[in-house]
């Protein structure tokens, strides 16, 4: 056999093998086949919607894959997710993990990480994966609450306008400087509350655009909203006690006007509505531990 045939075959085989090997190696590198993969355990109340091979996504990029799922002794579902070493930085202790099942397209687990200073997730933690089935369902759930908020805001507006009309009448009728100053304080506080609401509102767009924006921290929006509502309820409570005192001071004169009775009713309604809303928010704040009654 001529020697040049052997050389040609040799060159062919070497080049082909090198090319194929390089291509396979490149794809394997892109698939993180060479990087160390860590397995994290996640917890979910239900295994519904999870499947093996499901992607874990951060900012639209796949950073991990569901490896296995198992039912724990406590009845929760343990989900093991493989994450290559170079992607671990995206999963922090403060990250929120949500199972998204869009109406169209593949379901996926989305990581929301806001605080990059928070410590990196370690393999011995088992954070919970929350379910967000569809926006429709969520809106359906929240509809009655929306009506409540609407009513509260209406009442606050009514009260403030009535109070601004009645201020002088009350001063005349009551003759009690302290009560009147309480009413005034309330009127002023409407302004302060307005400003605080504005601060919150400046964050509204961000919240709607990015669901991970500081919802749960001590300065989180849920806590802020709660504080504002508590403030409203506190002021209204004080106003209520002022109005309680009015009849004793003024006797029949004021009662006969009927106006203050109506005002009182408005305030009662508002207090009740705000209290109900506060209860709802209290129940929803995901800091269950903090709501536990414990010795100080």
């Amino acid at each position: 056999m001529p020697r040049n045939i052997e050389i040609k075959v040799g060159i062919f085989i070497i080049i082909s093998v090198l090319l194929i090997g390089a291509s396979v190696g490149y794809v394997a590198y892109k698939k993180d086949a060479f990087s160390k993969v860590y397995t994290f355990t996640f917890m979910s109340k239900s295994g519904d919607g999870f499947s093996e091979g499901m992607p874990l996504v951060f900012a639209g990029f796949k950073i991990g894959t569901v490896d296995t799922m198992a039912l724990s002794d406590k009845g929760t579902v343990l989900i093991k997710i493989n994450i290559p070493e170079r992607h671990i930085k995206w999963t922090r202790k403060s990250s929120i993990f949500i199972l998204e099942r869009p109406l169209i397209g593949q379901p996926r687990i989305v990581v929301y990480t806001d605080e990059m200073d928070s410590p990196v997730l370690s393999t011995d933690m088992a954070p919970e994966i929350f379910h967000v089935d569809s926006i429709d369902e969520a809106i359906h759930k929240v509809q009655p609450l929306l009506t409540k908020i609407d009513r509260i805001l209406d009442n606050v507006v009514t009260i403030s306008s009535k109070l601004s009309q009645k201020e002088t009448l009350m001063e005349m009728a009551v003759g009690d400087k302290e009560s009147v100053s309480s009413v005034n304080e309330f009127l002023q506080s409407i302004d302060t509350m307005g400003r605080r609401l504005d601060t919150i509102l400046s964050k509204v767009d961000t919240v709607i655009a990015r669901t991970d924006q500081g919802l749960y921290g001590s300065d989180g929006l849920v806590v802020l909203l709660r504080t504002v509502l508590t403030d409203i309820i506190g002021k209204l409570d004080r106003l209520n006690s002022v109005i309680d005192d009015i009849p004793t001071v003024t006797g029949q004169v004021v009662r006969s006007t009927g106006d203050l009775d109506n005002l009182r009713k408005d305030i009662d309604d508002t207090i009740h509505a705000v209290q109900e809303l506060l209860k709802d928010i209290d129940k929803m704040i995901p800091m269950k531990k903090e709501r536990e009654i414990n010795v100080p």
Partner: peptide, 12 residues
């Protein structure tokens, strides 16, 4: 805003 907060917290 409240709806957004409630949707987010309510689901979690």
């Amino acid at each position: 805003f409240s709806a957004a907060v409630l949707i987010l917290t309510g689901c979690f």
